[in-house]
């Protein structure tokens, strides 16, 4: 590293990486190409990349209309946005208190946060399911969103960030007449934008793609999130109409992949940053 490769090395690097890239990309390419093909061409058992007759319009139209795909996408957006907003509202003040305020019980509180970091959310699925069953919250937006309002990882991440904010800044705000709530929302929130962005990317990617929890708590079609929607689509036509199915898969991954391609660096930094801490 840090030293240019020789010409042979440079060529070899590209050969190996291109081969790897082909494997990584193959499912995406095949998905998109298939989504353009008519059923007749898909069912021909021979290797053909491009369609001879383009059926993109029909396939995507089918994907959007056979199931309420748009509804699923809107659900996904609403749920991920609601989760993220709640996460900031709930966890940012807590992180500030843990990082910057002195109070009795702070050590215990932080220890509990660290302990909770070790609990994967699959573990608490059964009791939360029973709880929601008891209070009649199953099969609702609330069931999809509420369990994730608390993010101990978010608390941990924000606390680490706030620890690096100089105390002087908070003291200056107190002298200037801000209360603790004012400090959280007027000073800490804007200061923490980079960390919140990284956490937001992590949170949105995780919850847009989450399948386990929605699968458990949601029963009615109008609450399906995109992953449930595409799985439902597959069941719906017995998984034989591959053109529309691939179109549906493309539609479901498109929003995140497009966002990723637009802001690659930010996404990779965000996922790396949270990955290193997680």
């Amino acid at each position: 590293m840090r030293r240019p490769l020789g010409p042979v090395g440079a060529v070899l690097r590209h050969v190996v990486l291109m081969a790897g890239a082909a494997v990584m990309l193959a499912p995406f390419v095949w998905m998109v190409l298939t989504s353009f093909k008519p059923q007749a061409e898909i069912l021909v058992a021979e290797l053909r990349l491009l369609p001879t007759r383009w059926a993109a319009a029909e396939n995507y139209a089918t994907a959007m209309t056979r199931v309420p795909m748009l509804r699923f996408l809107v659900n996904g957006a609403v749920v991920t946005a609601a989760i993220f907003v709640l996460q900031v509202l709930v966890n940012l003040p807590c992180a500030y208190a843990l990082a910057k305020l002195r109070f009795r019980g702070r050590g215990v509180m932080f220890a509990v946060v660290l302990l909770c970091l070790l609990i994967p959310h699959h573990v608490v699925a059964i009791p939360i399911y029973i709880l929601f069953h008891q209070v009649g919250l199953l099969d609702s937006y609330a069931a999809l969103v509420l369990p994730f309002a608390i993010s101990v990882f978010g608390i941990f991440l924000m606390r680490q960030f706030f620890m690096t904010v100089p105390n002087d800044l908070i003291d200056a705000a107190r002298i200037d007449g801000l209360g603790e709530f004012g400090i959280v929302w007027r000073i800490m929130l804007p200061t923490a934008v980079p960390a919140i962005t990284a956490f937001g990317i992590f949170s949105v990617v995780a919850h847009w793609n989450d399948y386990f929890w929605p699968l458990i708590v949601v029963g009615s079609e109008e609450l399906y999130t995109p992953p449930l929607g595409v799985a439902f689509f597959r069941l719906n036509d017995q998984g034989t109409e591959y053109g529309p199915l691939m179109a549906a898969a493309t539609i479901v991954i498109l929003p995140l992949v497009a966002a990723f391609l637009v802001a690659q660096r930010r996404f990779i930094e965000g996922i790396t940053f949270t990955g290193m801490k997680n």
């Binding site: 100089p166 002087d168 800044l169 003291d171 002298i175």
Partner: peptide
């Protein structure tokens, strides 16, 4: 602090970065 009618200049300046 804000009721004491004082002002303070800090070592790190403590300007609000945003």
């Amino acid at each position: 602090p804000d009721q004491r009618d004082i002002a303070m200049v800090f070592q790190s300046y403590a300007l609000y970065p945003h």
